[in-house]
């Protein structure tokens, strides 16, 4: 027999989830089947899918490689101004993505180091490199936060014991800490990949939103909506939903499998 409290909370959960489902699902009903198929196999959409996945994979890899030492440092070591560093790294999560986009555009463009880089033949804006940089800046704080919680959750005494058995801090990190954070690391990879795939405003500013050049799925959705091409726009949106759904479902399955193994 369920209590009133339990029934109330289940009711709230089901209602809110249904609102989400209906809102997102309604997008699937907008384009006609022919319109969807044509848009999906258009050269522009195939380019956007390819660019989105390739840039997201590169930026997510860089983010993960950077967030591991960042998160571990913040979790385990004390150093001057640590709290300040932590706030700086968390800050991009608090303000709109567009702020990162503008800041990056100014810094990497002619107001910042753009002219110096141009002198050496390097251009970091309005191309796929710019997209990767934008995705990196947007996703890194989320990845660091997620992995920081994971490292915090791991009892430091595992590391103490490993070191008492003769292993250096580096060996202990790779033998003990990293394997124990496997589940959290996997979740972080998924979160990072999702953030990189879904990054919009920062990518639009730094990439320039150029058709067939810096047109990721999120940017494509915006560009086609602004020109009134609903089928292309909604198809890009549907693809983003499908990709996100798959990544989250994989994460759920993986974490559940791990939990069952532990039991």
């Amino acid at each position: 027999m369920r209590s009133k409290f339990e029934l109330l909370f289940i009711g709230i959960t089901v209602t809110i989830t249904l609102i989400f489902f209906i809102t997102i699902g309604s997008m699937f009903l907008v384009p006609s089947p022919e319109g969807f198929i044509n848009a999906l196999f258009s050269q522009q959409m195939i380019f956007a899918i390819g660019l989105t996945l390739s840039t997201a994979l590169v930026s997510a890899t860089i983010v993960i490689l950077c967030c591991i030492p960042l998160a571990y440092t913040l979790s385990r070591f004390d150093f001057p101004l640590k709290r300040f560093f932590k706030i700086i790294l968390d800050l991009p999560m608090a303000f709109p993505e567009i702020v990162i986009g503008i800041a990056l555009l100014l810094f990497l463009g002619n107001y910042g180091i753009g002219s110096i880089l141009e002198f050496y033949g390097i251009q970091l804006v309005f191309n796929s490199t710019g997209i990767i940089i934008a995705q990196f800046f947007v996703a890194l704080p989320y990845a660091t936060k997620s992995l920081y919680s994971t490292f915090n959750y791991i009892d430091t005494r595992y590391e103490f014991v490993s070191r008492s058995l003769g292993y250096s801090q580096t060996d202990t990190f790779f033998n003990i800490t990293l394997p124990l954070s496997k589940e959290g690391l996997f979740a972080t990879i998924i979160i990072t990949l999702s953030r990189c795939i879904g990054t919009f405003a920062a990518v639009l500013f730094v990439g320039g939103g150029i058709l067939m050049k810096t047109e990721t799925l999120a940017v494509s959705m915006y560009l086609h909506l602004s020109t009134g091409d609903i089928d292309m726009s909604i198809t890009a949106g549907i693809l983003l939903v499908i990709i996100s759904f798959i990544t989250i479902a994989v994460m759920e399955k993986y974490t559940n499998d791990n939990r069952n193994q532990m039991i």
Partner: peptide, 28 residues
């Protein structure tokens, strides 16, 4: 450094490495 002192430690809740079986814990 702790790894150079050759001092062993045993905790209340044992702190066995969950990513290893019994043999590997002892052999570590």
């Amino acid at each position: 450094l702790p790894e150079d002192r050759n001092i062993g430690i045993v905790y209340q809740d044992h702190v066995l490495f969950p990513n290893m079986n019994v043999y590997d814990n002892i052999a570590y």
